[in-house]
């Protein structure tokens, strides 16, 4: 065997490294925008959270002590983070087959599917949420169907329950999961599954050993977006979740708008943000691990 050189492989890899030029200046407007409209308010938020009293007269860690000193607050935080986990898991469960179906469809079917997937993004979240109220109400579509099929004798309580909220959030956030998944799955070489089948693996084995690990970057990206969107979905949480289910966004709203307790609201905002950031970083770590795995 002669010495093997593979310029075809080495070439694009080196060419892909951008030469550092003056392109970074293009990012300056955005950086300035972030500094003015994101970093500054964030620092203000931190500053406000460090007031010891609602009247903002003296500094202290009282707000944080108050938050962590009451198990009720921790329960609200916990249930919010858990809500995100439930929504993300279900979105993945339903979104993955949808994305997979998309990559397996012909062009006409793909156009139809992408419309169905994008459609929720093109309607206001308020409209979508009200649609869920109509669906889940006592006199709503689900209950009418159950009653007419004789599956229930009296209408079930679906609206203002966590199950109803999770269902609505799953639908509302679906595009955030499906779009990254489609991107990853479309890039998968269809020959890989043919190879797997020819080597004797059944469809499930092929899925678990080939498709699933190779689509991990898309799964991580989709979960990240869905999770962040689900835990902060103020409108859907309050309109479908109702007035007695308290999640962090409503809690913050209540403390600011109704009670004008800005320091406590700021403190719980910071706590919430750090918690979500923690979960997001966990996802990111997973994502980096999976990327190393795929592109080693």
């Amino acid at each position: 065997m002669t010495a093997i050189t593979a310029p075809g492989l080495a070439g694009p890899a080196t060419a892909a490294w951008p030469r550092i030029g003056r392109e970074w200046t293009l990012a300056l407007p955005l950086a300035a925008f972030f500094a003015v409209f994101f970093v500054t308010p964030l620092l203000l938020l931190v500053a406000v959270s460090l007031y010891a009293d609602a009247e903002m007269t003296r500094f202290g860690l009282d707000q944080y002590i108050r938050f962590f000193g009451d198990t009720f607050n921790l329960a609200v935080l916990g249930s919010t983070l858990l809500l995100g986990v439930k929504v993300t898991a279900l979105t993945l469960l339903f979104g993955y087959p949808l994305a997979w179906l998309y990559t397996r469809s012909g062009p006409r079917m793909q156009s139809a599917l992408i419309l169905v997937i994008i459609l929720p993004l093109l309607t206001s979240v308020v409209v979508r949420t009200f649609a869920w109220i109509v669906i889940l109400g006592r006199d709503g579509i689900v209950n009418n169907l159950l009653l007419s099929l004789g599956l229930a004798e009296t209408p079930l309580r679906l609206l203002y329950t966590e199950g109803g909220l999770v269902a609505a959030l799953v639908q509302v956030q679906m595009p955030l999961m499906v779009l990254p998944l489609i991107t990853t799955l479309s890039r998968l070489d269809p020959n890989l599954l043919d190879a797997s089948a020819a080597l004797g693996a059944g469809p499930w084995r092929g899925f678990l050993k080939v498709t699933l690990p190779l689509s991990l970057p898309g799964i991580v990206a989709g979960c990240l977006l869905t999770y962040a969107a689900a835990v902060t979905a103020f409108i859907t949480q309050s309109l479908v979740g109702g007035g007695q289910m308290l999640f962090m966004p409503q809690y913050i709203y209540q403390q600011t708008i109704t009670l004008h307790n800005w320091p406590f609201a700021a403190a719980i905002s910071i706590v919430f943000m750090m918690s979500v950031l923690g979960v997001v970083m966990l996802f990111n770590l997973l994502g980096r691990a999976s990327k190393g795995y795929v592109h080693a």
């Binding site: 203002y160 309050s238 309109l239 979740g241 109702g242 007035g243 007695q244």
Partner: peptide, 8 residues
């Protein structure tokens, strides 16, 4: 139901 606001 405990509605989140009077409109709801």
């Amino acid at each position: 139901a405990v509605a989140p606001n009077p409109g709801a």
